[in-house]
Design a protein around this nucleic acid. Structure first.
Lengths: 182, 182
DNA sequence: GAAGATTGATGAATCAATCTTT
DNA sequence: AAAGATTGATTCATCAATCTTC
């Protein structure tokens, strides 16, 4: 593996051991084994999030998109009218109002959406996807679809297992009311 | 639930549905079901990472620590001599050299470690944990241990399941050489 | 006063470019 | 030339404070 190809995946020489497992071993010797599984799970989520984000950014770079911007763009693409109030976008994307402003700023700079006035409530701002925005959304989605959203080497089963397990954390956090399986 | 208590957990009113499941449904109608599990898994990891980070920051706030800084501090605390070269810390924490510089800056500002010169190689910089650093490390660890690292409502089994599933992604990314189970 | 969005601040992550030392 | 660390730039996340509109 050349230095260039490696730099696309990790900034360092591969370690000869699993750093998370090693942390777990050292941990157990000082604080016992009770919290080790939780500690390792948290660290794993943090690390894999970085890996996935990095892969997605590689895939989306040709379109001038980041993954958060892609998510925001797709939310508009999927919507009926192609326009949504910024507040509603924040609720769906589960991000802070400030983040919505920044995301929409970036997408508007790229001409993928326009800010528009809400008809009845002048406090509200609408984000409306443009023709360019729709084209980019479709092209980027094709690429992500083919690349399996960078989830290699996870199969369908593992992906669903992950979603299910993590869903309980999201429910417990109060993101949404769990009324699907009632 | 009051507005204050809610703001500690999510910035928005809870949705009446699971936003990730809803995205999956809409997705399937336009691009088929093939990539849906991958898409939902990726989005779940991103969201849960944010939730966990937020909880950890709440827990660590009293110590003037963020979770990345806590990880760096613990790496020093666990080390034999209490001092490590910055490059080695980056390799273990799996972060960019620039991030190491920033992390060490923050910890040094708080007096939890000191920069020192490497004995033989003057290119290298050492981070050495201080007495204050050790005390904060122990106190913060107690809190995180009691709080199960914010992994509620995950039990030991789910935590281990998560770690195992995510490990394959880390291996595939080339973070480390998988020679544990050979 | 509350709701919706923005600005200004901080922390973390990355990359590119720079600087010193080997 | 290569290794190690830093600085400067960009993006995303948060919070606090502000501003307009309801």
């Amino acid at each position: 593996m050349t230095a260039e190809s490696r730099s696309l995946r990790s900034a360092h020489k591969p370690l000869a051991f699993d750093p998370i497992a090693e942390a777990g071993r050292q941990w157990a010797t000082r604080w016992g084994e009770t919290a080790v599984p939780a500690m390792m799970a948290v660290t794993s989520v943090m690390r894999v999030q970085q890996i996935l984000m990095s892969r997605l950014h590689q895939l989306l770079k040709p379109f001038g998109l980041t993954f958060p911007r892609y998510e925001a763009l797709m939310l508009l693409y999927m919507s009926r009218s192609g326009a949504l109030p910024l507040g509603k976008m924040g609720a769906r994307l589960q991000v802070h109002p400030t983040s919505v402003t920044n995301l929409i700023d970036g997408l508007e700079r790229g001409g993928l959406l326009r800010r528009e006035q809400h008809a009845s409530d002048r406090r509200k701002t609408l984000a409306a996807i443009t023709k360019d925005g729709r084209e980019v959304a479709e092209a980027a989605t094709l690429v992500l679809n083919e690349a399996g959203f960078g989830t290699e080497p996870l199969g369908e089963h593992d992906a669903e297992l992950l979603t299910t397990t993590l869903r309980s954390v999201r429910v417990h956090n109060g993101d949404f009311v769990d009324n699907e399986d009632v």
